[in-house]
Simulated assay, not measured.
Amino acid sequence: MNDRTGSDGVTVVVGAGKGIGRAVATTLARSGASLALLDIDRDRLAETAKLVASRCETHVVDIRDAAAVADAVDGVESGMGPIDALAHVAGILSTDAILDSDDSDWRKTYDVNVFGLVNVLKSIGRAMRERRRGSIVVVGSNAAGIPRMSMGAYGSSKAAATMITRTLGLELARYGIRTNIVAPGSTDTDMQRSMWADPDDDRHAEPVIRGDLATFKSGIPLGRLAAAEDIADAVEFLLSDHARHITMQSLYVDGGATLRS
Results as ranks from 00 to 15, higher is better:
residue 217 K to W: 01
residue 110 Y to M: 15
residue 19 G to D: 02
residue 181 I to A: 02
residue 171 E to H: 10
residue 156 S to P: 09
residue 135 S to D: 03
residue 139 V to Q: 04
residue 60 V to C: 12
residue 175 Y to R: 06
residue 250 S to Q: 14
residue 138 V to A: 08
residue 2 N to H: 09
residue 222 L to Q: 12
residue 116 G to H: 06
residue 152 G to H: 03
residue 186 S to R: 07
residue 157 S to F: 09
residue 27 T to Y: 00
residue 141 S to H: 03
residue 49 A to F: 04
residue 38 L to K: 09
residue 54 S to I: 10
residue 170 L to S: 11
residue 202 D to W: 00
residue 259 L to F: 12
residue 62 D to C: 10
residue 187 T to I: 00
residue 24 V to W: 00
residue 20 I to L: 04
residue 24 V to Q: 01
residue 51 L to N: 07
residue 207 P to V: 01
residue 132 R to G: 00
residue 34 S to R: 15
residue 93 L to W: 14
residue 39 D to T: 04
residue 118 V to W: 10
residue 29 A to E: 07
residue 25 A to Y: 03
residue 38 L to S: 07
residue 133 R to W: 13
residue 93 L to A: 13
residue 198 D to R: 05
residue 190 D to M: 03
residue 225 L to C: 05
residue 136 I to L: 11
residue 154 Y to H: 09
residue 160 A to M: 11
residue 131 R to Y: 09
residue 85 A to Q: 15
residue 257 A to M: 10
residue 94 S to A: 14
residue 39 D to Y: 06
residue 77 E to D: 12
residue 228 A to Y: 00
residue 219 G to D: 06
residue 108 K to S: 15
residue 16 A to S: 02
residue 167 T to G: 10
residue 190 D to C: 00
residue 127 A to L: 03
residue 9 G to E: 05
residue 214 A to F: 03
residue 3 D to R: 11
residue 97 A to Y: 13
residue 209 I to Q: 01
residue 261 S to G: 14
residue 53 A to R: 14
residue 182 V to N: 04
residue 208 V to D: 01
residue 214 A to L: 11
residue 215 T to S: 13
residue 211 G to V: 04
residue 78 S to T: 14
residue 135 S to I: 02
residue 186 S to C: 00
residue 107 R to Q: 15
residue 166 R to F: 01
residue 201 D to A: 06
residue 135 S to A: 14
residue 57 E to A: 13
residue 45 L to A: 06
residue 241 D to K: 14
residue 211 G to Y: 03
residue 155 G to D: 08
residue 14 V to I: 02
residue 40 I to N: 09
residue 9 G to C: 00
residue 100 D to P: 03
residue 143 A to N: 09
residue 206 E to Q: 10
residue 247 T to Y: 12
residue 84 D to V: 15
residue 147 P to L: 07
residue 19 G to P: 01
residue 233 D to M: 03
residue 187 T to S: 01
residue 45 L to Y: 04
residue 225 L to R: 05
residue 119 N to F: 11
residue 151 M to A: 07
residue 164 I to S: 08
residue 136 I to M: 11
residue 102 D to H: 15
residue 133 R to A: 09
residue 208 V to K: 03
residue 149 M to G: 02
residue 176 G to H: 09
residue 68 A to R: 13
residue 238 L to N: 04
residue 157 S to Q: 11
residue 182 V to F: 03
